[in-house]
């Protein structure tokens, strides 16, 4: 984001809207370009009395900041708005998570803290040795040069984004060691992450992923997301 210094009156109205606290005011407001994640929140907030915000034309790798930070941007190839995928939201139709499989997502930088992409690479490299299946439609997976190791393209690692999701599918029996590895790598990160887990319910309504998370020493939340199974046509059962 760019603030036109010739227009800005230095009122500071925009300052609290920036989730990265990247805007400061001396005589006029200035955006710290290294901290800015190009989420456009300041622009959309519409609080500038003199329309001093100017949307820059972004090129690679900086455009990655916008792709991972502005939820109004849909990803080419998936047509899904936001920085993630449809994941379990459409599972009854897509059959993405089958019985016996578990979905895990590690969202770096969430809540509200942001992340450099090197943190995401660290997590990807921690889980890749388990042979996990990284979600191919996730924009982060598309930055990997080797899904077997979780290695990312070198030129993207320093880019800062609002959040980025390492998203994968694994077998039920892999869940406990994978969650243990995630706990370990958490110590090497300079940001926070929100962790989640999902699975198809059993016939009796119990949730395998919930049980496995408890076994790994985590406390699953009381609230969460439930796909209530009304999408049609239904995916064929395996």
């Amino acid at each position: 984001m760019h603030i036109n210094p010739d227009k800005c009156v230095g009122c500071g109205s925009c300052v609290p809207y920036c989730p990265m606290r990247a805007i400061s005011v001396t005589d006029v407001a200035v955006v710290d370009q290294d901290e800015c994640v190009e989420c456009d929140i300041c622009y959309r907030a519409g609080v500038c009395p003199v329309d001093a915000f100017e949307l820059p034309v972004l090129e690679y790798p900086r455009i990655l900041r916008q792709v991972f930070s502005d939820p109004l941007v849909s990803h080419p190839g998936t047509n899904v708005p936001g920085r993630g995928t449809e994941e379990m939201k459409t599972n009854e139709v897509t059959g993405r998570f089958r019985r016996g499989h578990v979905g895990i997502a590690v969202e770096l930088g969430r809540p509200g803290t942001g992340t450099r992409l090197y943190n995401a690479e660290k997590v990807a490299q921690a889980v890749a040795p388990f042979g996990v299946k990284f979600e191919k439609h996730n924009p982060l997976t598309q930055l990997m040069v080797d899904e077997n190791t979780g290695k990312f393209k070198e030129d993207c690692l320093q880019e800062k984004v609002l959040s980025a999701i390492v998203e994968f599918d694994c077998l039920e029996e892999q869940v406990v060691p994978i969650l243990t590895a995630i706990k370990e790598v958490a110590k090497d990160l300079d940001t926070v992450f929100s962790l989640d887990i999902c699975s198809r319910t059993r016939e009796d309504g119990t949730v395998p992923s919930e049980e496995l998370a408890k076994k790994a020493g985590f406390t699953p939340s009381l609230n969460g997301k439930t796909n209530v199974g009304l999408g049609r046509p239904l995916a064929e059962e395996e």
Partner: peptide, 30 residues
């Protein structure tokens, strides 16, 4: 998206059932 137990009860009353469920496992790291 909401309390999972209450959602399951609502599903039953509405004549459907939870198909896939996702839990948060909290915030970690720094």
């Amino acid at each position: 998206s909401g309390l999972i137990h209450d959602t399951a009860v609502a599903c039953k009353s509405a004549g459907t059932a939870p198909h896939t469920v996702e839990h948060s496992l909290g915030i970690h790291g720094a």
